[in-house]
């Protein structure tokens, strides 16, 4: 009897092991599929940046070429569009981060009347559909006879970046130790020196994060810009215009380049963070 029972139990254990293996790895397997899905379009963008399309539409693979990368600015208008996007993003992220950092500092450091209203005013732009923001700014500029172009785009970008900057800085200020500032003041530093020598170095990573976030959001924006650009063309607007008649592979080149630059920056950031947390643990 016992000789028979052993293999049966072993078989049962084997089945249980398989079940346990499946249960343990089904999520990992699903996650792999999910990431494949998430990254598939990015792969397509990069692969088709090396395509030599037949005709206007870069939809089907024809022939491998480096020409699109070599002549990345070979399409009329693409270079000026990229330049404008970078200029706007640089200016908008600096202005919005400056304004947003001040708001975030005030919210984290002080108790004051009107916090609720302030939080609401920061939250509203984040929860308003872009098309409504774009449309409302358009009506403002139309009614005040603004000339549409560089300045209207810049104003729009600063407007929707401020909230991102506040949220981003605030998130990193939560653990901020006020005693360090008080210590500096006790040692005779005035408020400005304290801010320069103590506060600013402490919040520098938060400011950098906000700058990068605002830059990314600004460079990528289409909807609000579309409503307020007049005849100026940013890179997303160039893509939109090109898409109607068949986007040239150079669009994929720029898309891939932006992706690679942003990814490198983020990977560096992750590496630094990991090292810092490791350092904190060993301390």
């Amino acid at each position: 009897m016992t000789t028979l029972a052993v293999p049966a139990r072993a078989r049962a254990r084997g089945a249980a092991n398989v079940w346990a293996f499946v249960r343990r790895h089904v999520l990992a397997f699903y996650a792999a599929l999910f990431f494949l899905y998430l990254l598939l379009p990015i792969g397509v963008v990069i692969v088709f940046s090396f395509n030599q399309p037949v005709g206007k539409f870069n939809y089907t693979w024809h022939e491998f070429t480096f020409d699109n990368w070599r002549y990345w600015n070979g399409v009329p208008g693409i270079q000026s569009a990229i330049t404008l996007s970078l200029e706007i993003a640089a200016l908008a992220s600096v202005i919005a981060t400056a304004l947003g950092t001040l708001i975030a500092l005030a919210l984290v450091r002080y108790g004051f009347r009107g916090r609720g209203v302030t939080n609401l005013l920061i939250f509203l732009p984040l929860s308003t559909p872009e098309i409504v923001m774009g449309a409302s700014l358009l009506t403002l500029f139309l009614n005040l006879n603004f000339v549409f172009g560089f300045w209207t785009i810049l104003i729009a970008h600063v407007m929707f970046c401020i909230s991102f900057a506040v949220v981003s800085v605030k998130a990193r200020l939560i653990g901020f130790d006020r005693h360090l500032e008080e210590a500096a003041m006790d040692l005779g530093a005035n408020e400005w020196v304290t801010f320069q020598k103590v506060t600013l170095p402490l919040i520098a990573p938060a400011i950098l994060a906000a700058l990068l976030l605002c830059f990314a959001v600004s460079v990528d924006d289409f909807v609000v810009t579309y409503f307020n650009s007049g005849s100026e063309v940013t890179f997303p607007l160039f893509v939109w215009g090109a898409a109607r008649i068949g986007a040239p592979p150079q669009v994929n080149v720029i898309g891939s380049a932006i992706f690679i630059i942003a990814l490198t920056a983020m990977l560096l950031n992750v590496a630094v963070q990991t090292r810092r947390t490791k350092g904190a643990v060993t301390e």
């Binding site: 963008v45 990314a216 997303p236 893509v239 992750v270």
Partner: peptide, 22 residues
């Protein structure tokens, strides 16, 4: 997490055009 936000690093319109291709 970086891989989850990776699509955001490709311009919105370009990744939508990629779906048009796919």
């Amino acid at each position: 997490l970086l891989m989850i936000v990776a699509p955001f690093f490709v311009t919105y319109l370009i990744r939508t055009l990629a779906w048009e291709t796919i």
